[in-house]
């Protein structure tokens, strides 16, 4: 429980800093501070927290389902598939409502992730590096398809926006879809035991009376919607789904009934921290949060691979 309390305190501090920091000075600027907070700072802070939580939770679900800790949404073709869906709907119905675009993107993401899961069944398990490599190639192929569609239809600009996650464009009225992630986090928490059991492997999951297919499908749907929402509203953010679940697993284990809130909080906190750093280092200009996270994430991941593990259970 100490982990929970510390994470919560860290999160509150970060959120406070996020509300205070930006191109406009809240206390001395010409703009109305309340307006800046309501229109920009609060939505931006919420969006970063939700995006981080959503991607981290998606990462846990994928890692448990395929029993491999080196896989994450960015290595399962999920964001690329969502982009293909988005391109499709943009071409067919450019004026479609955001919710419609979102639904199409999530459906495409679901199909893309399902394709990876189907592929994963045929990948030998002996070498854990093999599956992430297969995922990298699979995502690369889907990404190439998306790029080709965009190139032939003059939509390459859009791809650029979807590929790099950053929060400067988040304003009131343009990010609210992300609250879907909060709703799905609650659903996922109700499934926490089942997702942990998936991590024991298909044989054990079924021997323990789990409806394996339905559970995997539910997990997959949550992954697809979370990733699609993030891609549509702020753009893809690799590494979050890889690094965060690994940190939590390493320090507190895989009992998701206990640790799912930690995954969500740490994911949200780290992405918000990345966004904050991106806002500060070149003030008043910004560096995309995804870029900051990728640099820090790579370092954290290298440390994770070699750090000694010490953990006791109460």
């Amino acid at each position: 429980m100490r982990g929970h309390a510390l994470s919560l305190i860290g999160l509150v501090l970060l959120a406070g800093a996020s509300l205070a920091v930006g191109a406009t000075d809240l206390w001395r600027g010409d703009l109305d501070a309340q307006l800046v907070l309501a229109v920009s700072r609060i939505p931006r802070t919420c969006a970063a927290l939700l995006a981080g939580a959503g991607l981290a939770l998606a990462g846990v679900v994928i890692q448990q389902t395929v029993q491999n800790r080196l896989v994450e949404p960015g290595l399962t073709g999920t964001p690329e598939a969502a982009m293909i869906g988005l391109l499709g709907i943009t071409l067919v119905a450019p004026g479609a409502a955001l919710l419609t675009k979102m639904t199409v993107a999530a459906t495409a993401a679901l199909a893309g992730t399902a394709g990876f899961f189907a592929l994963a069944r045929y990948v030998p398990r002996r070498d854990p590096m093999l599956l992430p490599l297969v995922g990298l190639i699979y995502a690369g192929i889907l990404g190439a398809v998306a790029m080709w569609i965009a190139w032939t239809t003059d939509l390459v600009q859009f791809i650029g926006i979807w590929q790099t996650g950053e929060f400067s464009g988040v304003l009131r009225g343009r990010y609210e879809l992300m609250w879907l992630i909060a709703g799905l986090a609650v659903v996922l928490y109700l499934l926490a035991d089942r997702i942990t059991i998936l991590g024991l492997g298909e044989d054990y999951a079924r021997a323990l009376g789990l409806n394996y297919r339905a559970t995997v499908l539910a997990g997959l749907a949550i992954v697809a919607v979370n990733v699609a929402v993030v891609v549509v509203t702020v753009g893809a953010m690799p590494f979050v789904g890889l690094v965060v679940p690994n940190i939590v697993s390493r320090l507190w284990g895989d009992n998701l009934r206990r640790n799912l809130p930690l995954v969500a909080m740490l994911g949200g906190g780290l992405v918000l921290a990345a966004d904050l750093i991106g806002r500060v280092v070149r003030w008043p200009y910004e560096i995309p949060a995804a870029t900051v996270f990728a640099i820090a994430g790579a370092a954290i991941f290298l440390w994770l691979l070699n750090a000694p593990r010490k953990r006791r259970h109460g």
């Binding site: 395929v66 029993q67 491999n68 800790r69 398990r125 002996r126 854990p128 942990t196 991590g199 024991l200 492997g201 044989d203 054990y204 021997a207 697993s249 390493r250 284990g253 895989d254 009992n255 953990r311």
Partner: peptide
């Protein structure tokens, strides 16, 4: 049974 994947951290 023999599980092929990662052993869960439980």
């Amino acid at each position: 049974t023999q599980s092929a994947g990662a052993v869960p951290r439980l």
